[in-house]
Amino acid sequence: MKPFAYDRATDADGAVATVTADPDAMFVAGGTNLVDHLKLGLVTPEHLVDVSRLPLDQVTEREGGGLRIGATVRNADLAAHPLVRQLYPVLSHALLAGASGQLRNVATTGGNLLQRTRCAYFQDVTAACNKRDPGSGCAALSGWTRYHAILGTSSDCLAAHPSDMAVAMVALDAEVVVLGPDGERRVALEHFHRLPGDRPDLETVLEHGELITAVEIPPLAMARRSAYRKVRDRASYAFALVSVAAALDVQDGVVRDVRLALGGVGTRPWRARVAEEALVGGPATEAAFAEAARAELAAASPTDDNAFKIPMTRSTVVAVLSGLAGEETR
């Protein structure tokens, strides 16, 4: 770990000003991902600005419905929040499916969105990685890719986004509130993470010095009956092979509205727009769910190691939507 200066921020504007002014500075909040990366030598900041004690730790109801979630709200507290449990169970379930109790007590909302891929080669400084070291190549292309993405990949990067929380949030049309030196702006979460393309090192639309201060979730009545399902290599405490976040509104056997997002398969939290379009107005049947998943996955480009994710994603989408449809008609 390269030596670094440490400052604890007392106000958000000051934190933004400090990091903006110093190209070698980074924000740290819970640190569960950053400290890991400091130890591995993946990042070598010279200055850390600790934003974990900024007064951004509240979950509040927005006027007109929906929630505003402060950026430093801990994952455990967000999952347990009564309004989240009641209005957006998919978000509680996604949070609780992630990491462990200890990590969820520390990891923050903003940090979760910014957590970086668990690609084994990204995490090994002796491996070529276009994300860590632009232009160095991609060791994963000739390596082990069981956990890699099948959607949104490029010839430069296959790394999957690891968050569970973000998958639920992207299904819920969340917006990220960002504070920069010139003030606040909002970005739809769906467009917050970039596809790797030929610049996998550019992971989000944030500029250096910009700080996530909140995530806002609009009202969505059907989200009261929403679900998150995570398929993984352990029953708990493991990253997703495939995960599915969904909310479904069915009336008289017809899909009126649906939100569907995928984890473990995308280079970013994957909003399944193609599948959603295929579903709306059609029958709420297993066959239709499978067909919609197939349509979404038509663009997939798997490796030998992770080709199983195509049928696994399809099966999981069918299982989740069938479960929600069953609840609807019960």
Partner: peptide
């Protein structure tokens, strides 16, 4: 039976060389 597998890739690496990627049974298993 359920989890354990260390990968050795063509580069001679063991890419899943930690307890997040080399899965041993947890309580829930």
């Amino acid at each position: 039976a359920l989890h354990e597998e260390t990968v050795i890739d063509p580069s001679g690496r063991m890419p899943n060389h930690d307890l997040a990627q080399y899965h041993v049974a947890s309580h829930a298993d």
